[in-house]
């Protein structure tokens, strides 16, 4: 079943269109930067962007920071929101369950397919950004945000960790969208519901008056992957973010499982 879901993912045009769009946005930013040669002043704009003009090897991290606040979570929410509700809307859900595919089994397969999509998206974005960055800006030894130089091995390790951290954060989004996807037969409603939660969280994170709830908001620690490129690595927010996402993932996946396995399928 997992193989079937992955095949469905790969054979779906939407998968590749959305990933192409995700990779296109940082490329567009890079082209503008290269043509105008005007970088955002340090400390403004997306993370790392002020430094990429000097070193294109930093562009993958910058690209992740560009797509992370909105584009990537929207793509993940759409794919995860479609997981069950999309099958329900097309009427294929009942035939899958009659075949029979166990409900827990199906949910796990869907989750793995969404994770594969997320990882694929993050990898393509970083890969394209690396090629674009080094071609447009040239590459040098990777400097850390703190100014010291990183060895190639350390830089690669940190980039891999950053990709995993972003992937873990997106899994939190996927869990919420997957839960909503088991509630409704409309993939649009599920995706929009998850996006609404993220927008709410984003607004509250920026609001000082909401400081009390901020440590518990899903988007609060998303950009903490930047800390991986500091020297030494600032682990405080990274660990908190990882733990917080683990709670979101556990709670919403648990709710999705509980709802889906006891639900009447009337679609």
């Amino acid at each position: 079943m997992i193989g079937v879901e992955l095949r469905k993912l790969v054979r779906r045009p939407r998968t590749w269109v959305s990933i192409a769009l995700l990779a296109a946005l940082p490329t567009l930013v890079a082209v503008f930067l290269a043509v105008s040669d005007v970088a955002p002043r340090p400390g403004t704009g997306p993370a790392f962007l002020s430094a990429v003009l000097d070193n294109g090897a930093l562009f993958p991290a910058a690209a992740l920071a560009i797509v992370l606040p909105l584009f990537l979570p929207v793509a993940v929410a759409v794919v995860a929101g479609d997981a069950i509700a999309g099958e329900a809307q097309d009427g294929t859900l009942r035939y899958l369950l009659i075949r029979p595919v166990g409900r827990t089994h199906l949910l796990v397969a869907k989750l793995i397919s969404v994770m594969a999509y997320t990882l694929l998206a993050v990898l393509v974005v970083s890969g394209v950004a690396y090629v674009v960055g080094t071609q447009l800006f040239g590459s040098g030894p990777l400097p850390s945000v703190s100014g010291t130089e990183l060895s190639t091995g350390a830089a690669t390790l940190r980039t891999v960790l950053a990709v995993l951290y972003v992937g873990w954060s997106m899994l939190g989004v996927a869990a919420v969208a997957l839960f909503l996807s088991t509630l409704t037969d409309s993939p649009l409603a599920a995706a929009l519901g998850a996006i609404a939660l993220l927008v709410t969280s984003g607004v509250l994170v920026a609001l000082e008056a909401a400081a009390v709830v901020q440590p518990y908001l899903p988007t609060r620690y998303w950009l903490a992957f930047v800390d991986l490129f500091r020297d030494p690595v600032l682990t405080r927010d990274l660990l908190r973010g990882t733990a917080l996402q683990a709670v979101y993932i556990a709670v919403f996946l648990g709710a999705a499982w509980a709802n889906f396995t006891t639900k009447d399928i009337t679609s």
């Binding site: 469905k8 097309d90 009427g91 035939y95 009659i98 075949r99």
Partner: peptide
Amino acid sequence: LAQIGSLVEGPAFI
């Protein structure tokens, strides 16, 4: 269930 073939409320495909 594996020994049943079925058609419920119209066919559905990808």
